[in-house]
Amino acid sequence: MKESPVAEPKKISPALKMSLELGPVLLFFVAYLLLKDRVFTIGGREYEAFILVTAGFIPVILASTIALWRLTGKLSKMQVVTAVLVVVFGGLSVYFNDERFFKMKPTMIYLLFGGALGLGLLRGQSWLQLVMEEAMPLKQEGWMILTRRLCFFFLALAVLNEIIWRGFSTETWVSFKTFGLTIAVFGFFITQAKLFETYAIQDDDTPEA
Rank of each mutant, 00 (worst) to 15 (best):
K2S: 09
E3M: 07
P5F: 01
P5H: 05
A7M: 06
K10D: 09
A15C: 04
A15H: 13
S19Y: 02
S19N: 13
L20K: 02
L22G: 00
L22D: 00
G23E: 04
V25S: 08
L26G: 03
L27K: 04
A31T: 01
A31M: 05
A31R: 06
L34I: 06
R38K: 15
F40T: 10
G43K: 14
R45Q: 15
E48L: 11
A49K: 07
T54D: 01
T54R: 03
T54F: 02
I58G: 02
P59R: 00
P59A: 04
V60L: 15
I61W: 09
L62P: 02
A63D: 01
W69P: 08
W69N: 09
L71G: 01
S76E: 11
K77H: 11
K77R: 07
M78G: 08
M78C: 06
A83P: 09
V84D: 11
V84H: 11
L85F: 09
V86M: 14
V86E: 11
V87Y: 12
V87M: 15
F89E: 04
F89M: 14
L92Q: 11
S93A: 10
S93M: 04
V94P: 10
Y95I: 10
F96R: 15
N97A: 09
N97R: 13
D98H: 04
R100V: 14
F101H: 15
F101V: 14
F102S: 05
P106E: 07
T107E: 03
T107G: 00
M108H: 10
Y110F: 13
Y110N: 10
Y110G: 03
L111N: 02
F113V: 03
F113Q: 01
G115F: 07
A116F: 13
L117S: 00
L121A: 02
R123P: 03
Q125G: 07
W127T: 09
W127N: 03
W127L: 15
L128D: 05
Q129T: 02
L130C: 05
M136I: 11
M136Y: 06
L138C: 08
L138S: 09
K139E: 15
K139N: 08
E141H: 03
E141W: 03
G142K: 04
W143G: 00
I145R: 14
C151A: 08
F153T: 00
L157K: 06
L157G: 05
A158E: 06
V159E: 06
N161R: 05
I164V: 15
I164R: 09
I164N: 02
I164P: 10
W165K: 00
G167Q: 09
F168Y: 12
F168C: 05
S169D: 02
T170N: 11
E171Y: 09
W173I: 12
V174R: 08
V174L: 10
S175F: 10
T178F: 08
F179C: 07
F179W: 14
F179T: 10
I183H: 00
I183Q: 10
I183D: 12
I183R: 08
F186C: 03
G187L: 09
G187I: 06
G187K: 08
F189T: 01
T191D: 06
K194L: 08
K194F: 12
L195N: 03
F196W: 03
F196M: 12
A200K: 14
A200C: 06
Q202E: 05
Q202C: 00
D204M: 10
D204V: 07
P207E: 05
A209F: 13
A209E: 12
